[in-house]
Amino acid sequence: MTKQLPKDAKFRMMRKGKTGAAAMPLSPKKAFDAPWHAEVFALAVHLNEGGYFDWPEWAGRFGENLAAAKTAKIGVVEGLDGSDDYYEIWLQTLTELMQEKGLVDAKMLASIKAQWREAYLTTPHGKPVHL
């Protein structure tokens, strides 16, 4: 039979593993922590369903990018926490794949992003923001 620790002991030990590795963050109640996480997640799923890449291709590249980010971050922070940083790499991966397939180009991305920034900065608070 397995036994459970008392309720209050749960997660208490999660701050640090015995190897000194990073603690595991607690889970959010919602599926996505931020709207843009949901958006970029759904973009990849939709593009996959549209046949622009298959899931092994996605997972392979995403895994490489996660590993590279982890390596780059060693010594700075205790690894990726699985929220903002995770979806930033998701976005990076999707952008790379779209660029490599010639579907999106970097200059246009930068230009449209600047237009969105400008639109937010010039639209009165409370009004819908459009390009």
Partner: peptide, 29 residues
């Protein structure tokens, strides 16, 4: 921030830009 709409985070703007282009090109619905 009361004067204009709250500026989304940098990655959120990048997602919006990517989505805008994909919609314009008819790649996504």
């Amino acid at each position: 921030e009361d004067a204009h709409s709250l500026l989304p985070s940098e990655p959120a703007l990048r997602v919006k830009a990517l989505e805008t282009i994909l919609v314009q090109k008819g790649l996504i619905d």
